[in-house]
């Protein structure tokens, strides 16, 4: 490792990203534009999260990278290998051991702590894209707090289907002000964002946007008062590997039979170890 290029990015690039990060934390849920750099992975493969991680990482950090809860998927392994190769930091699969967690589409099952930072990889940062394609109008709508089109979409879904059809990227209201795209995490993870102890940072490299949720911030799914926010239902299901219940599951289909496994592989490993020790 060449120490003069710690964390791959040059110092001015880091300073620009850091400036955006400070503003993003100070204005929770607001999307801050930044000059996304070329990275040694294609845009859309986690470059936003990667740039945030590389701009904030320090030698004393312990890094964890997950892709849909899994430490061992190709995307997670490659990003982890890249970051450790350009920084020399330690990495770990254990959620509690990590100080910096980069994630794609999941929040770890284990409760996060005060000293942890969760960096999300975000494909589409703008929550209004589905109802308003014009970026100038989107900016104006955020400025005016005008989310009526999202409410209409929610109303149409509710009146026709009884509930919203949005399965992931469910819009959330942050600090009672901005409506934000939480990245394509399942609805199951939305309540975990609320009042979380960890700092949550979001990076969209292709779309050149950064946003954030500070710790202990009010994050609510957009919903009508008389409607319950329903998350994925896994009642009666247990992980076939570790036996855990009340977690988010991956469904694996084998012919006509479905098997369920913990989506968070580190959690599953820890449960299995606990079971074996007992």
């Amino acid at each position: 490792m060449n120490s003069s290029t710690f964390a791959f990015l040059d110092e001015d690039a880091k300073k620009e990203i850091r400036r955006s990060l400070l503003k993003a934390v100070a204005i929770p849920g607001y999307i801050v534009p930044f000059a996304s750099r070329e990275m040694p992975v294609a845009r859309g493969w986690g470059t936003g999260g990667l740039q945030i991680t590389l701009s904030i990482i320090v030698e004393s950090d312990t890094l964890k990278v997950i892709d849909q809860g899994c430490d061992g998927s190709v995307n997670a392994v490659n990003i982890r290998d890249f970051i450790t190769s350009v920084t020399g930091v330690e990495s770990s699969n254990e959620t509690s051991a990590a100080t910096l967690i980069q994630t794609r589409h999941r929040i770890p099952e284990e409760k996060l702590k005060d000293n942890q930072i969760l960096v999300y990889q975000v494909p589409y940062p703008e929550v209004l894209t589905t109802v308003e394609p014009d970026t100038a109008k989107q900016k104006q709508m955020h400025g005016d707090g005008d989310y009526s089109k999202l409410w209409v979409l929610l109303y149409e879904d509710t009146s026709q289907y009884g509930d919203s059809r949005i399965s992931n990227r469910y819009p959330v209201l942050v600090n009672k002000h901005y409506v934000m795209d939480p990245s394509p995490i399942p609805k199951y993870d939305i309540p975990v964002m609320n009042n979380n102890s960890a700092l949550q940072l979001f990076g969209a490299g292709r779309e050149k946007r950064i946003y954030a949720i500070p710790p202990y911030t009010d994050v609510r799914p957009l919903k009508f008062d008389d409607r319950e926010f329903k998350v994925e239902n896994f009642s009666g299901i247990a992980c076939e590997r570790c036996g855990a219940t009340d977690v988010f599951f991956d469904e694996v289909r084998r012919g006509n039979k479905s098997s369920f496994f913990c989506s968070d592989t580190a959690f599953c490993d820890a449960q299995l170890e606990k079971n074996n020790a007992a």
Binding site: F6, E11, R18, L22, V25, I56, V58, L199
Partner: peptide, 16 residues
Amino acid sequence: ELLNRENFRNCLEAIS
């Protein structure tokens, strides 16, 4: 650069 990244982490913590 070392000073900057360590100080920035403290600033990020402070503003968070």
